[in-house]
Design a protein around this nucleic acid. Structure first.
Lengths: 145, 145
DNA sequence: TTAGGTGCAAACCCTTTGCAGCAAG
DNA sequence: CTTGCTGCAAAGGGTTTGCACCTAA
């Protein structure tokens, strides 16, 4: 009963776009980028394919950031960092917090744990730098007053 | 320049509602419950107060679950479990994955890590039980065919 | 009297969906 | 030809907001 999938250049392009990007793009971002190659592309198509690809496990949704769902071409479970200022989503490539808590949870609560999401929030390097230089500029202005 | 806050029975009730609940209610859920005591309460007021209380740090947002933001009266950082079937949000009271990764991240990436969210997904005990009994029923029906 | 708080309803914004036409198999 | 895919635009659904009125201080 499973739907027989046909080939679609636009779908391929969407996958490519997500996998090439390190930015964890949103539907809108993907749409904007692909419009260069597919002028007639519609947002609906992007959304439909994203849902489809997520359900198939080809891509994953990092989660809502600033109201938008952000996508990841890397399926393997890994933590993310989200900048509260600029909404950048960045992969964290550090030794992972232990798997195995899942088993503890299943034992204690009787749940079936299928996956997890670990996200750190804060200020990214770029935003820290920008705010420091802005602060310095303000300081200088104050000194001149 | 900070706004001087006035007392508001409705705001108090919203806080109370969230802190009493173990269900991590959504704005709608809170609204529904409080309408019994405040027939003229409006959804807008609930949303305005939730935003306010979150900004003040009185409550926290667990995150989007099924399109809705779910709130928690417990401020302390702790993991949650979200049922993919029924959207239940449940506190995980197990020894925490290690704090300290934050420092590693700050060193390696130059970020400023302020907080984190750890969420496990899967099937809750209730949904497992329901589906098992449903499966048994189906089995029985099949046997009768 | 002076803000902040609230009700109401319209506006927002991201996302989903119905429909008719297009295209892959 | 059959069925999935797409464009388009309207509809959805949670959340935000403008405005006038209400209320705490």
């Amino acid at each position: 009963m499973a739907t027989t999938r046909k080939h679609s250049r636009k779908r391929d392009a969407i996958i490519q776009c997500i996998q090439d990007a390190t930015s964890h793009p949103s539907a809108e971002t993907i749409y904007s980028k692909l419009r260069a190659d597919f002028p007639k592309l519609s947002l609906g198509t992007v959304y439909r394919n994203l849902t489809l690809l997520r359900d198939e496990g080809v891509i994953t949704a990092v989660g809502f950031v600033n109201g938008e769902v952000r996508f990841d071409g890397v399926i393997e479970d890994h933590p993310h960092f989200v900048c509260d200022e600029c909404s950048a989503v960045i992969d964290i490539e550090l030794s992972h917090p232990p798997r195995g808590f899942e088993v503890e949870i299943e034992k204690k609560y009787g749940f079936e744990v299928l996956h997890r999401k670990l996200v750190y929030f804060g200020k990214c390097e770029r935003c820290i730098a920008e705010q420091e230089s802005a602060s310095v500029a303000t300081q200088a202005a104050d000194d001149n007053s």
